[in-house]
Simulated assay, not measured.
Amino acid sequence: MSKRIRKAVFPVAGLGTRFLPATKAVPKEMLTVVDRPVLQHVVDEAREAGIEHFIFVTGRNKGVIEDHFDIAYELEDTLKRRGKAKEYDALVADLPAAGATSFTRQQAPLGLGHAVWCAREIVGDEPFAVLLPDMVTLGNGPKQSRCLAQAVEAYEAHGGNVIAVEEVPPEETHQYGIVSVGKDFGAAFEITGMVEKPPRGTAPSNLMISGRYILQPEIFDILAKGEKGAGGEIQLTDGMVTLSGSQAFHGVRFDGKTYDTGSKLGFLAANLAFGLTRPDIADGLRAEIAKLLG
């Protein structure tokens, strides 16, 4: 029987240069989609999937992330004294349990694979999830689970390693990591190959790696070798390709939509999409959109 997925790694050391000057003093992960930081949306998704321990791989000037997942005594006291019970309850509901968060430092920007490797001592010898903090997901329909929950279901059915994927237009495949498709199991499929940003016209499919992974701990031994790939960085995809030589990988087609909030267009689209799911503002937002398009 497969070990349960209890821990998740969030690589949050990036500089966010595509959002300067907004990210000069505010980490890109703390920019808001509606009224919640991008990173909070991703942590919410992990919680929904049953994650119990949240591991943040940070960099310099990211202290506000640690503060966000801590008690804010003055703020909470002020809310209670002013009778703002709804706001206070929302803060408390978002607060992780004591000891459920860990923070470690990626001291140099050596790539996603290196960031994941930095969490090795905290993860230990058990399978774990990785969630890219730029990518926020919405399931289809009001009760549809988000991406990581669907990946966990595939892991529980097949074991091994799982990568969430999503369709992209064929003309955009050169921008993403792309998988090759083997035997299909319905909700999941066998992955027979992976390639990072294939040249135009050479992609083995139109299924992009969408930023949600479930990996076995043997990936750490591979990443420890420090072999550099695209961009002169230690790439997680390269490590997974090596691991696939000895372990099974399955893909799960995410039944929903992923928004890349690391791009300006994706960030704006995420705000609209999440705003339209909110009963308190959806009607007003639709009216404002209609005015802008009018």
Score class of each variant (00 low, 15 high):
L20Q: 15
R60D: 15
V34G: 00
L39P: 03
L31S: 07
D35S: 09
G63D: 15
E45H: 04
R81E: 09
T58K: 11
D35A: 08
K24F: 14
K24C: 13
H68E: 14
Y88A: 00
T17Q: 14
V12H: 07
A90Q: 10
D44F: 05
T58C: 13
G59Q: 05
D35P: 00
V9N: 03
P21S: 03
T23S: 12
K7N: 00
K84F: 09
E74F: 11
A13F: 11
K62H: 13
D35L: 04
K7P: 00
R36V: 00
A8Y: 02
K62F: 08
G16K: 10
L31W: 05
I5N: 02
Q40S: 10
P37N: 07
H53C: 01
A8N: 01
G16F: 12
E76V: 04
P21L: 01
R81G: 01
G14R: 10
P11Y: 04
V9C: 04
G16M: 11
D44L: 06
L75A: 09
H41N: 07
G14M: 13
V34S: 02
E48R: 12
K24W: 14
Q40F: 09
I5H: 01
I55H: 03
I65A: 05
E76R: 10
A22R: 15
A85S: 06
A46Y: 07
V34C: 06
I71L: 15
P11G: 04
R47D: 08
T17E: 15
L31Q: 13
T23K: 11
V12L: 10
F69P: 00
H68K: 08
I65V: 14
V42A: 06
M30D: 06
E76Y: 09
V64M: 12
G16Y: 12
H68C: 09
D44S: 10
G59T: 08
A46H: 04
E66N: 09
D89C: 06
D77I: 03
R82I: 04
H53K: 10
R4A: 13
R36D: 01
A46M: 02
H41Q: 10
T23M: 12
T17R: 15
K62R: 14
L15K: 15
D70S: 15
F54E: 06
A85P: 00
A25W: 15
N61G: 11
G14C: 09
F10H: 01
F56E: 05
K24M: 14
A90G: 02
N61D: 15
T32H: 11
T23L: 14
H41I: 08
R4P: 01
R81M: 07
A49F: 06
H41V: 05
V42Y: 03
L39F: 07
L79H: 02
L15I: 11
V57H: 08
A49W: 06
A25L: 15
G50R: 07
V38K: 07
D44I: 06
H53F: 07
E29N: 08
R82W: 07
E29D: 15
E48Q: 13
V43K: 07
T78G: 02
R60F: 13
D77C: 09
E87F: 00
K3C: 05
E48W: 05
R81D: 04
H41P: 03
R60N: 12
V34P: 00
E87Y: 00
